[in-house]
């Protein structure tokens, strides 16, 4: 049953990081990404990597899930590495075969860029692994709320996101059912060329869209029936509240920034 698959990659838990306010986590992740760009040497990267791994370990989430997020980006990381390796010049020549020359500068730059990319991915992984999609939506809505004065539809966007999250499992389940029903009528979704396969999707997609519209219409009615009229005058049962640990998180991030700047100054390696 497709509907049982967890959305995104959220791992429920009750660690310190899980309990942080989603806004704190969003801001901290942005800060962490900025710090990755501030770091100018491998010493800084080492510190940041240590920090991310320590955070992950404290949540009780197995490291392999953190690393798994790298897989889809492996190609880009590798590409960046090779590009830098071959096209950066300067420093001492390490290997020289035919027109290919690998220099010490190239190797350093390649490693530097790859490490930076890996750290960026791991930092955002940490956010999505420890924050449920719905908490993320709430966090984003609250963070963007001040922009409502200039007409930014923060509430509407958040509502759309949360309804989408609510209906993805339902629609996946429906897609599974329709696919089986058409297969029972001899439909073939697996063989044939690209065009044949695209054509074979019609019996799946048409009922799926028709169904989605029907659901949307019924949901709109049900929302109306429960007095929904947009974000104006609306309250929330769950209020996001900054707590002690959120302050602590801010301090930790600030300390991390200071440490990275210090390491840049020391210029160790």
């Amino acid at each position: 049953m497709l509907k049982n698959i967890t959305l995104g990659q959220y791992f429920p838990g009750n660690s310190l990081i899980h309990r942080l306010d989603p806004r704190t986590k969003l801001l901290a992740t942005i800060a962490l990404i900025a710090i990755v760009f501030v770091a100018q040497g491998f010493s800084g990267f080492l510190l940041l990597a240590g920090f991310v791994v320590a955070c992950a370990a404290s949540t009780g989430i197995h490291l392999k899930f953190l690393v798994r997020g790298l897989k889809p980006l492996m190609f880009i990381i590798l590409f960046t590495f090779i590009l830098n390796l071959f096209f950066q010049t300067g420093g001492t020549v390490l290997i020289s075969i035919w027109i290919i020359r690998i220099t010490s500068n190239g190797l350093r730059m390649a490693g530097f860029m790859a490490a930076r990319l890996i750290l960026l991915v791991l930092s955002s992984q940490l956010l999505t692994l420890t924050t449920s999609p719905i908490a993320l939506t709430d966090g984003l809505e609250t963070l963007f709320r001040p922009l409502q004065v200039i007409g930014f539809p923060a509430h509407e966007i958040a509502m759309m996101m949360s309804i989408a999250l609510r209906f993805i499992p339902t629609l996946m389940d429906e897609a599974d059912k329709i696919m089986k029903a058409q297969k029972a009528r001899g439909a073939d979704f697996e063989t044939g060329g690209l065009i044949a396969r695209a054509k074979a999707m019609v019996p799946l997609l048409v009922p799926l869209f028709v169904g989605a519209f029907r659901r949307a219409e019924e949901l709109a009615l049900a929302m109306d029936a429960r007095c929904y009229r947009g974000g104006k005058g609306r309250t929330r049962m769950k209020q996001l509240k900054f707590q002690g640990i959120d302050g602590l998180a801010a301090l930790v991030i600030a300390a991390l920034l200071a440490a990275v700047i210090l390491l840049n100054r020391l210029n160790l390696f």
């Binding site: 949360s162 309804i163 029907r214 049900a222 429960r226 309250t235 929330r236 049962m237």
Partner: peptide, 24 residues
């Protein structure tokens, strides 16, 4: 399936009251 708005049971129950502006 088509009348539940949110991804958490208690938040869905709160939906109507939230619309009415009831204190949290």
């Amino acid at each position: 399936d088509n009348q539940i708005v949110t991804t958490i049971v208690e938040e869905d129950c709160a939906f109507g009251l939230e619309n009415l502006g009831t204190p949290p």
